[in-house]
Simulated assay, not measured.
Amino acid sequence: MLQTKIKDVQIRNEREAALAEKYDEIAERLEGYAAENDEQGTFPYASFDILREAGFFSLTVPQKYGGYEASLYEMTIALERLAKGDGAVALAAGWQSCLFLNYREGNRWKEEIFATVCQGVVQNGDTLNIFATEKKGGNIFRGSQPETVARRTAGGYIISGEKTFATLAPIADPLIVMAWVEDEGVLGEFLIRKSDKVVVKETWNTIGMRSTGSDTIMLNEVFVPEKALLAKATGKDGGLKNRSTFLFIASVFLGVAHAARDFIIDFAKHQQAGSLQKPIAEVPHIQQKIGEIEIALTTSRTLLFSLADKWDRYPHLRDDLLNDFQAAKYTICHQAIHIVELAMRVAGGRGLSKDFKLERLFRDVQCGLSMHPADDMIVQGLARSALYSD
């Protein structure tokens, strides 16, 4: 019988319970920095030190290289909880966790290079991310050809270009950079170490998720050896489709909504309107909104964890889960926004105050709609699948 203080029907065993308890405690620590980092738009170095000390970045690294080798289900548990403390930190850090989960399941790199990168994470606390988006062409997953170019030279390549929305830019090293291999006419995936030819330009200034460090990275004729070319892809999507990314995004934004839900329930229990001699939690229209919050949260969490479980347990079905994962990303991100909007209605005018936690959660949760894949891509893809698939 499962013995744990965690009251969550999605927790199925002692390993998951230990993970949930650990990241609940870490989330509380992260929350102590969240408001200030959000207000100043600064990168949360102290929060990332906490994650590094806790071994978070080894979460999805294979056990054979010293990692925890978390499943998608376990990663989802950790990220939803981290996002309750600080959604921006969970989103930024989650990219690395998702990266190793994807490469662990379908590695395109040479094993010795993957081993070296994994060991850098485990032993040195390295943080890394894939950088594909550019200011002019946008996201390569929409079919654009990157303007970042790799030109062959003696012993390797010279890479020049500019990457935007480069989450983790202040601390990422090494970088995984998508560039156009000029002499071959293919998309290449390069491993690049920071140097004086790699410049981070602070450009991230948004309404939400303000401390993800999604700045601009300038690559100024960076030389990399032949072995730095990790993989090539010729398909329109660059051969980079992965389903687990969609659930990672959904788990983070649902975690933000979950934090709003917890906050507004506590608020309703203790807030007393001047015209009433009882807490607003006893007012029927407040209970209606909180009930709607519970419906949206419960159904979203059930969808999220059931798909993660299916991914883990049935590897042979993963290629058939694309529609399900995209639909889940769409549904959960929209439901997360709805949850926070309902919480704002319960809070009334106070919810608009910059000194009120809910205001930050409201801004952060909006950003889910901008994460790849965007709504139009999901809707069109599902429509075409329904209309034209055999």
Rank of each mutant, 00 (worst) to 15 (best):
G87M: 08
T60L: 06
Y73G: 02
G94I: 05
E31P: 00
F57C: 10
A93T: 12
S71T: 15
E39T: 09
I77P: 07
A83F: 01
E39H: 11
N102C: 06
R52H: 11
L79E: 15
A35I: 05
A83K: 02
S71V: 04
A90W: 13
F56C: 08
A27F: 09
A34Q: 02
T42G: 01
W95T: 14
G66R: 06
G67H: 01
E69P: 00
Y33I: 05
T42E: 09
G41Q: 02
A46V: 09
A35S: 04
V61T: 12
A27Y: 02
L59N: 02
D86K: 00
Q40E: 12
A70M: 03
A46H: 10
E53S: 12
G67R: 02
E105Y: 12
E105L: 05
R52S: 12
F48N: 04
P44C: 03
T42S: 14
G41A: 03
E39G: 00
R108C: 03
G41H: 00
Q96P: 11
L72C: 12
R108N: 01
L101V: 00
A70I: 02
R52L: 01
Y73N: 05
T60P: 11
R52W: 09
T42Q: 04
A78W: 06
L99Q: 13
I26R: 05
A27H: 09
F56D: 03
V89R: 07
S71A: 07
A93Y: 10
D38H: 10
E36V: 03
R108S: 08
L72N: 10
Y65V: 04
A88P: 07
P44A: 04
N37K: 01
E28W: 07
L99T: 11
A78I: 08
K84Q: 14
D49S: 13
F56L: 08
K84E: 15
V89Y: 12
F100A: 05
D38R: 04
R52V: 11
Y65C: 02
Y45V: 05
K64E: 15
R29K: 15
G87A: 13
G41P: 03
Y68P: 02
E36Q: 11
L91W: 12
E69K: 13
K64F: 08
F57Q: 07
Y33G: 02
N37L: 00
C98T: 10
K84H: 03
L59A: 14
R29Y: 13
R108Y: 10
